[in-house]
Design a protein around this nucleic acid. Structure first.
Lengths: 214, 214
DNA sequence: AGGTGTGAATTAATTCACAGCA
DNA sequence: TGCTGTGAATTAATTCACACCT
């Protein structure tokens, strides 16, 4: 069992391994190997074994890994052995799309949906009803909400983040295209869609220029 | 001017620097420094200078960087000095939200919106009209579409990707929660929303357990 | 026999310190 | 003087080879 600190790249890959395992399980596969996991996760088998070894030894030598067991262990490592209660702030199309994103329910329980638009308040959703943002702090406390997901326009995001922190959430996932400030003990994950496109266009343009010059 | 290969982490950070520069420009700031960029991008000033130095020298010693100039250079480096033509496949809420995502227009031009649902076809959007997916290959050729964005359900994503590649796109940005296969000269960027939440919950739960044991 | 787990070797990324230039 | 640009030093991450266990 390793006591060393875990590379953050490893954490990102654990998420991928978990997704692969869920896929294998869906296909009825019960046993797997570092080789197979590597193939599906698009990394090397060395990498898979090393990543897992940071946390413990979950496989059987000469045999491989049990899919359900490894899945359970990864969920535990990622803090997903219980569901996190989630507030989604900003119920435009993005917020609504995320509320219904497949697989969300396996690890998260969205129990609060907020917006400031009076026209939206009361509107029913698949998993609840849109409530006024002003009630958010109260709801966060009442329902023990731990994670806040921000899907409001950029200019409102920092304000929303501050209020979520005040209300007592433990972490923030931000989809607005700004980098948010937060107290250093509140982790914030900033997701930016255009980042993906920009990275992609970097690789595409480099490929098209055939080894770009000077 | 460096000839060395660029760390892929550096490319991701360039995207962030560009976003920061756009923000500075919006605030009317004309000159900046590695210090300031580092602050806003949440990295060290060493890192900023090193990252930029992989590509050239864009600053003035003793002075700093010109915001518009550095912005232009970063856009060039990222292949964003012209707009990429974009097809969005899957016009559910996620597809529609992304079509209107702020800042998209600065670097991308969505010129094709596709769905298989007959009920959606013909529906007007902010930037166009939903067309039948069957017409996608023809439209990709006619309008010179270079990048395909996939926002369909997971089970349809691979099929869509294959058809996009056949139709001749140069790169794919995938929002469906699966890892896609593609020919090795076609870059694919797989975005997974739950990845962000899972990473976040890892950090939150570790923090809550106060240095997690064994 | 066969596939994991892990120390050692290698490679990559980051940090640093300071030379170089406006 | 002040801040960039960069080789050198350090630290981190990945790859490898093989001991080890079933």
């Amino acid at each position: 069992m390793a006591k060393t600190k875990v590379p953050s790249a490893t954490v990102s890959r654990l998420v991928t391994y978990l997704r692969v395992l869920e896929d294998l399980e869906r296909r009825g596969v019960l046993k797997t190997s570092s080789e197979q996991l590597a193939e599906e996760a698009q990394v090397t088998a060395f990498q898979v074994r090393k990543d897992l070894a940071y946390f413990g030894s979950y496989g059987t030598r000469g045999v491989g890994y049990s899919v359900p067991l490894l899945k359970r262990e990864l969920r535990r490592l990622l803090g997903l052995s219980r569901k996190w209660r989630l507030a989604i702030v900003g119920m435009g199309r993005l917020g609504q799309a995320l509320a219904d994103y497949p697989g969300l329910d396996e690890n998260f329980e969205p129990v609060g949906f907020f917006d400031v638009d009076p026209g939206k308040i009361g509107q029913p959703l698949t998993k609840g009803t849109i409530e006024p943002f002003a009630k958010m702090p109260q709801v966060v406390r009442e329902r023990g909400i731990e994670i806040g997901m921000i899907t409001v326009p950029a200019q409102a995001a920092q304000e929303v983040a501050d209020r979520l922190v005040q209300a007592g959430v433990k972490g923030i996932l931000n989809f607005a295209p700004v980098v948010l400030e937060a107290p250093k003990d509140i982790p914030v994950e900033n997701v930016d869609f255009l980042a993906g496109l920009s990275r992609l266009s970097f690789f595409v343009s480099r490929h098209m220029n055939e080894r770009w010059t000077e």
